[in-house]
């Protein structure tokens, strides 16, 4: 019961924070919608697509990028969540979480589930908007996508937790954009099929194949078309397990950096 109450408490707090930051929902949707409505429209003819699995017919570029943009939402939300953990640590409220009697791994799991819920809300809202440009996926595809969205959220959320613990100051978080989010996103199959990348550069193609985010996108793409990408599923499960293990380990107590608190001395003080 204690675990359940603790889980509900963490979930409730994250949802409260999400509700309070409604602009976060807006910006989370504006970014992929710009790609979908503007970028895709402009590049539709420039980026011709061949027929590749899971598609059984030629598709418009808008349809191709929807899974990638959904994964982008999850990626950005996970990094946003890790940013809020860095903020919590700087503000001190992380200590409150870590003082709970339940194991830290459970607390971090609860955080990841809360992150998953927020991501899923954003992704399904995005799917609704995608209907406006006639990207209508198989009905069951939306259902199959849910566990994949959850898995991707947990993977990227764990990566975010790991990053949150390695970033010592809030100001350094901008580096995450340049060194994690953008490379992960652009070196993947989110915006272009990998054969196009291979045509341009073999080594870039290899980097994209190696990128686990690519596996995540393909897993989601196949899921949305009611198909299972088994190899990608195994890869994402493995990297999730590894990332989560390291994230939990990074939250174990360790000798901290120097810092002795308040330096001011009162008149009547020792």
């Amino acid at each position: 019961m204690m675990y359940w109450r603790c889980f509900v408490g963490v979930l409730n707090r994250e949802m409260l924070k999400f509700w309070q930051q409604r602009s976060r929902l807006l910006s989370a949707l504006v970014r992929p919608l710009l790609w979908l409505f503007v970028f895709a429209a402009g590049f539709r003819s420039a980026l011709g697509l061949s027929m590749i699995p899971p598609y059984e017919t030629y598709i418009l570029y808008e349809e191709y990028i929807v899974p990638g943009l959904a994964a982008m939402i999850i990626l950005f939300n996970s990094m946003q969540s890790s940013l809020s953990m860095v903020y919590d640590r700087e503000m001190g409220s992380m200590k409150v979480l870590l003082m709970s009697p339940v194991p830290r791994s459970f607390l971090l799991c609860s955080k990841l589930v809360a992150n998953t819920l927020v991501s899923a809300i954003q992704v399904y809202l995005f799917f609704c908007f995608a209907l406006l440009v006639d990207v209508q996926l198989p009905l069951m595809g939306y259902v199959y996508a849910l566990p994949i969205i959850a898995l991707l959220s947990i993977f990227l959320g764990a990566l975010g937790l790991l990053l949150a613990n390695s970033i010592k100051q809030l100001e350094n978080f901008a580096g995450v954009m340049n060194f994690v989010i953008f490379p992960m996103f652009f070196l993947s199959s989110a915006l272009y099929p990998l054969w196009k990348m291979q045509e341009a550069s073999e080594w870039l193609y290899q980097v994209c194949v190696f990128n686990p985010f690519t596996s995540g996108i393909e897993l989601l793409r196949f899921g949305l078309y009611e198909k299972l990408a088994a190899k990608e599923l195994v890869i994402v499960l493995l990297v999730t397990l590894i990332t989560f293990t390291f994230a939990v380990r990074s939250f174990r107590p360790k000798p901290a950096a120097a810092g002795f608190g308040n330096k001011s001395l009162g008149k009547n003080s020792a």
């Binding site: 019961m1 204690m2 675990y3 109450r5 603790c6 509900v8 408490g9 963490v10 409730n12 707090r13 409260l16 924070k17 309070q20 409150v96 979480l97 003082m99 709970s100 009697p101 339940v102 607390l107």
Partner: peptide, 16 residues
């Protein structure tokens, strides 16, 4: 960003 009640309820839930 949370109220007094929300802060206290959050901590109470962390202690089950």
């Amino acid at each position: 960003d949370l109220t007094v009640k929300q802060n206290l309820a959050y901590f109470a839930s962390l202690h089950g």
